[in-house]
Design a protein around this nucleic acid. Sequence first.
RNA 1: GCCCACGUAGCUCAGUCGGUAGAGCAUUUGCAUGGUAAGCAAAAGGUCACCAGUUCAAUUCUGGUCGUGGGCUCCA
Length: 647
Amino acid sequence: MKFTGSIGVSDTVTLTLPDSSAVSARKGETLYEVVGKIGASLQKAALAARLDGEPVDLSLKAERDAAFEVITFDSPGGRDLFWHSASHLMAQAVKRRYPDAKFAIGPAIEGGFYYDIDMKAALSPEDLQGIEAEMEKIVGEDLEVRREEMGREEAIALFDGAGEIYKVEMLEEMPGDSVSIYRQGEFFDLCRGPHVMRTSMLGAFKLLSIAGAYWRGDEKRKMLQRIYGIAFPDRKRLEAHLAIIEEARKRDHRKLGRELDLFSFSNEVGAGLPLWHPHGAVLRYIIERFSTEEHLKRGYRLFSVPHIAKADLYRTSGHLDFYSDNMYSPIRIDEQDYYLKPMNCPSQIQIFTSSIRSYRDLPYRGFEMGTVYRYERSGVLHGLTRVRGFTQDDAHIFCSEDQIEDEIRNVLDFTLYMLDVFGFSERNIYLSTRPEKSVGSDAGWDLATSALKNTLDSGGIGYTVDPGEGVFYGPKIDIKIKDALGREWQCSTIQVDFNLPERFDINFIGRDGAKHRPIMIHRALLGSLERFIGILIEHYGGKFPVWLAPVQVMLINVSEQEAAAAGGVRQRLLDAGLRTEIDGRDESMGYRVRDAIGRRVPYIAVIGKKEIEEGTVSLRKRGENSSKPVSVDDLIGMILADQEAKR
RNA sequence: GCCCACGUAGCUCAGUCGGUAGAGCAUUUGCAUGGUAAGCAAAAGGUCACCAGUUCAAUUCUGGUCGUGGGCUCCA
């Protein structure tokens, strides 16, 4: 069988396959043929073409009958192939330096690759350099990467002989009789492939961090050492990638939170308990106010409930049985146990049941900025995005069964509207189904799950199913958005619940005069203010749109002679509802302008002699490096208009 | 909670192979009265996270606690 085609630097590569389909790659791209599915001579030819840039005749005999693919770094699956090859390279280097190392799994992931390793020596960050040096050496050795197929038993014997207990465990659980391994030099690994053809193709790499990871992700099993890394075909792309990571770090909300004086944590107050400083608190207030108003516009009623409640409430709700791991120890008051509330629902339900409800009251939508306290293990706390006390924009909708889908649709629209307003257009939607630890009948769960699913389907909204990720009382739709470093965070959640109405014996009087059981929809759109603001800070890199900016206008009086005038302008702006500060410090103007720019203030207004005479300010907008005179009235009008434009 | 790393001035970080510490920025004061990304000078500021242990002596070594970072597990 023959492949025909040619590879050349001045050409597009086209390879005609036996079934007469053709594949092609643009010139200058590196080719990674699928090792094992292509003959060795063809591999060599392709490699030679890459190395020498000379046209090569590919009218070569295949050693094996098979279709093959041309994969470049940027083609689908190319990165995975490349990164997985890099993880083999890393494993080989580790093995050379630490002969007792045993390997678990080493896949490509979204931003690179890792390998989980079991070995005696505890790696520290400095050790990574040594491993990198060894990797460079192996790249220089230009080892051929060869695929071998063998029987499963044979493979077990091979890995068992090498002491690779994790590979043996994986092999024993694998279906099928035959497996593939990849060899490069003295190193071999169990692997499905594909890989690059030679180690020299792994142009540029960097080991990023080491971390602990449980074998099989099970916290009861052994903790292995995981090394994370990234690789690219050339140095330039690696540098560019590292620069992006560095750029993202600058937007980290924990860093910006300090720089912009938005929030802090105090050792005295406790881990995971954020303290909102004036600029952060006002940002939070703006979001709360906006959210509350939007809820009122949509027919929600306001709720407000206390931060603690008696144990019985959480016994009835099931929280003590299903959620106690996340609840704090009780507080003893007059011989009774009280708990800090981990969720708002049980308390809010008491408002619904405080009087007899009619079908005319449904859907009954109750909204609250509800603060909850949840125990989070110390190691999971993370800035504002994972805390122990947080405020949810929480609402519970009590409705009849035939209202569910409409209500879900409303909530979904509302959610997407809110995310849009805050500029989050990139989001991933998940449908989470019944978890192991849960209450209620299968029928209820099915009904609730299909209600969510139908709404998504009929809205043509793409989503991923997250099996077993629902809450103990019901399934949910989760919407996740990303932080600066690409980590996904769950914010919005919409949950359908047949169980709490049952447990609390919630009723409404139907048209027929009989009692009926409502269904509850739990939902939080922004999720928690803390997490949401954390991501918001990163999303905007601290450059909040005008309507959110903690300080909208910074007034700078040129000298002390203009201090009174600046005070007068400030009052006019404050009267118009604009958040305005004066920097009247005894510093040079350049210094104060620079400072205001550093604070990402959207409008910097300078007042000097000239401006006082003309009744103007000298306005410099964020992102511009020139200023122009504007009357105070025009300034107010301009800011109000920008504020109205939201995004 | 687990693995690894870390904790020095408000911030960013030096430093002490065991003899109680330094810079820049920020702060305060004085001078300069400034026109759009750092004016000049001086001062003040630290139980070297906390608690034990070893030692003549601990910020430095050991252990524990608290906290932080990267992950794992878990989650808004």
